[in-house]
């Protein structure tokens, strides 16, 4: 794993040298501002509810479905085309460090985007309506885990596809399936129905997130749910990068 920090720093500076991240940050700010103000009006100035809309309502899920694929789409697919991947994979760092460094860089950007919620917390605190900081920070931490999961998925897709555009498209589709399939629910009864509902329960990100983090509780079971998914997806991504070597 030595060397992942070099990759991380490179990726992060690469992000901020390109216009895409600035555009995304800017749009996310408007997006958050719009929904925060809307929620404030709708819930009659209820600060905690309005903030948890940003970190748990549908605007949040749209954000974490769409943004991570845009951040990760270029990471491996484009570098493979331009040959930079060849440079990284012949540098004295392991494939795992390369994938991990990239993932952490994308998660850092996502965390930055999501921390606008904290900013609003500070603002309403200063204006005399202190939010529930414990719940807010826990929800923020949980939202980063959710973003990490989708980032890992995005990197896996980027490693498997040839062009950034394809990578972004398939990553978004997979994210939607990940989130929407448990909502749709499984047909009840029968062996197939049981198996399907068992699978859906295992990918039910929303309930794992809303059941604990959003209510202000850090439950190790739910943390492990996310960590396990992230580790599995990153492991697969490393294997796919390795497979790219075999393809030449």
């Amino acid at each position: 794993m030595r060397g992942w920090r070099a990759i991380y720093r490179r990726e992060l500076s690469g992000f901020f040298f390109a216009p895409l991240v600035w555009i995304l940050l800017c749009l996310a700010l408007f997006y958050h501002a719009f929904f925060f103000l809307y929620a404030l009006k709708r819930f009659g100035g209820e600060v905690n509810t309005s903030l948890s809309i940003l970190l748990g309502g549908w605007p949040f899920w749209v954000l974490v479905i769409v943004l991570p694929p845009l951040l990760t789409m270029r990471m491996i697919s484009e570098e493979s085309r331009s040959g930079v991947l060849e440079f990284l994979l012949t540098a004295p760092v392991s494939d795992t460090a390369v994938v991990f460094g990239k993932a952490i860089a994308a998660v850092t950007v996502m965390a930055t985007i999501l921390s606008t919620t904290l900013l609003y917390g500070v603002v309403v605190h200063a204006l005399g309506a202190p939010p529930d900081w414990g719940q807010l920070l826990t929800a923020w931490f949980g939202s980063i885990l959710v973003a990490f999961l989708f980032t890992a998925l995005g990197i896996l897709v980027s490693a498997s596809s040839g062009t950034p555009l394809i990578a972004a498209f398939f990553a978004i589709v997979l994210n939607v399936i990940f989130v929407a399939a448990p909502l749709a629910g499984a047909p009840t009864g029968g062996l197939l129905g049981d198996a399907l509902s068992w699978v859906l329960e295992k990918i039910n990100v929303i309930s794992h997130f809303q059941g604990s983090f959003l209510t202000g509780a850090i439950d190790s079971a739910h943390v492990i749910f996310f960590v396990a998914w992230i580790a599995a997806l990153l492991f697969l991504a490393v294997r796919v990068v390795e497979a790219r070597r075999w393809l030449g």
Binding site: R10, S13, G14, F17, S82, G83, V84, L85, E86, F87
Partner: peptide, 8 residues
């Protein structure tokens, strides 16, 4: 292919 990051 002379792999270098063009933005750096």
């Amino acid at each position: 292919s002379v792999p270098l990051y063009p933005e750096h």
